[in-house]
Design a protein around this nucleic acid. Structure first.
Lengths: 242, 242
DNA sequence: TCAAAAGTGTTGGGATTACACCCATGG
DNA sequence: CCATGGGTGTAATCCCAACACTTTTGA
């Protein structure tokens, strides 16, 4: 690829033609409440006008000198204190009148975190709250649509990639994992087939320890083994549920 | 959803914080050369500085008063003269230094057209050319990456949605359809299983007419039946190959 | 001892894969 | 008549879905 031009050679006219636009990132944050066995969304009570006091995805304008992906990372960190977590781009939303305050194109990201890991003080300072998927309040602008798309994306991705584990603590039980997937797909799944499938994939390490908090018998803890997964992928393995 | 605020109530300060950015759309245009049995990409020779003369996806800045999707529609129409064709959003590309001329966030769309339908004069005026997937030239900026992602997206989508037909004329033969999918997946597919699968889906109408251009025996033409497909979807049917 | 959750196997049907030969016809 | 591409069927295997009872143990 030949890129001889330096920035000084470039006539300004081409870029001057463009009408620049406010660009925002908004961030879908999924969590799994392991006690209540519910998939949850982290939403903030918007503090700034317009629409102050309404529920909203957390977001920010993209700064002129930061990578787009970094904006999303920053937004997530500013709200939760967390870094190095699962975060991917979802879709851009760009109807010209989607925001009554100005022309804003929003690029939506989605992330998966473990409830409990986030910085509670930060989260409270933003007036944020976890909402059950079935109890999402009215959201500003087109944020409802964003949530709907994010759920679809989560469902599609969780089928073919081992991302469910991002929502669980390092140690989890099979009943917890099952509940998680039932929440993601919003439907019951067959207990025995689910266990069989997961265990046959050879991605989980069974620990000696049991979780006795939910039953007298107790359920064995498992860990997802990322190394094993990477090895398997090299040999052509594809994670796939159902 | 409560949106009492009118645009006049809104303090400007919130939006004044934002640093606005050039936003472009770039468009992946797939076509299938039915004679040569090759999947192709339509690329333009960039006419404007910087990087004039280099190969590029076709694109444009998003205008302040047009919907994002409309920008993509416009770009496609300006190059090909075509409207009402398959066009969906792929991904945004937003590294801060991806364009040496200015901070530009590019939102990439992908489209499927039938080679031959486009307006040749327009296409030539843009210095555009069809390139075999295996003979894509060097492209400006991060356009190569965009093409790679678009191929992945095409592969993923063609598995679960009957979009291959967008690349073929209304009447096509099963050998042509097979060749198309072999090109999309860049690998040979089993002839008999492919036919069986497609025909068993009940989406194709067999015509009486034959295409005699490629063999003495001739191959029967088929048509994709969109109505049948929609009916089937209502009853829970899912298009799925392999 | 019993309630409540954890754990365990088998079977039948449907789908996918692999595979090789005959058909039709124009030149 | 023959070369060329079009068209066809079957068998083996794998995967998925359906389904019910036993185990453990704290209270």
């Amino acid at each position: 690829m030949k890129i001889n031009s330096s920035i000084n050679d470039i006539p300004k006219s081409y870029y001057q033609d463009s009408e620049s636009i406010n660009v925002a990132v908004d961030c879908i944050i999924w969590g799994f409440d392991i006690k209540k066995e519910k998939l949850k969304l982290l939403l903030i009570k918007r503090l700034v006008e317009p629409l102050a006091g309404e529920w909203s995805l957390v977001g920010s304008f993209v700064k002129i000198n930061e990578d787009l992906d970094f904006s999303a990372t920053r937004v997530l960190k500013e709200l939760t204190g967390l870094e190095n977590i699962f975060l991917e781009q979802l879709q851009s939303f760009g109807k010209k009148d989607r925001d009554p305050g100005a022309r804003v194109i929003s690029i939506v990201y989605w992330s998966l975190i473990q409830i409990g890991q986030q910085d509670e003080e930060l989260v409270n300072a933003h007036g944020a709250n976890w909402f059950d998927l079935n109890e999402v309040p009215n959201l500003i602008l087109d944020h409802k649509k964003m949530v709907e798309m994010a759920l679809l994306k989560l469902q599609q991705n969780a089928r073919y990639r081992p991302i469910g584990f991002e929502l669980l603590p390092k140690k989890f039980t099979l009943p917890q994992l099952l509940k998680l997937y039932q929440e993601i797909y919003q439907k019951p799944l067959d207990d025995r087939n689910f266990r069989k499938k997961l265990i046959s994939m050879n991605l989980l390490n069974k620990l000696d320890e049991k979780d006795k908090s939910t039953s007298k018998k107790g359920a064995f803890y498992y860990e997802f083994d990322g190394k094993k997964y990477n090895e398997l992928v090299k040999t052509g393995f594809n994670f796939s549920l159902f």
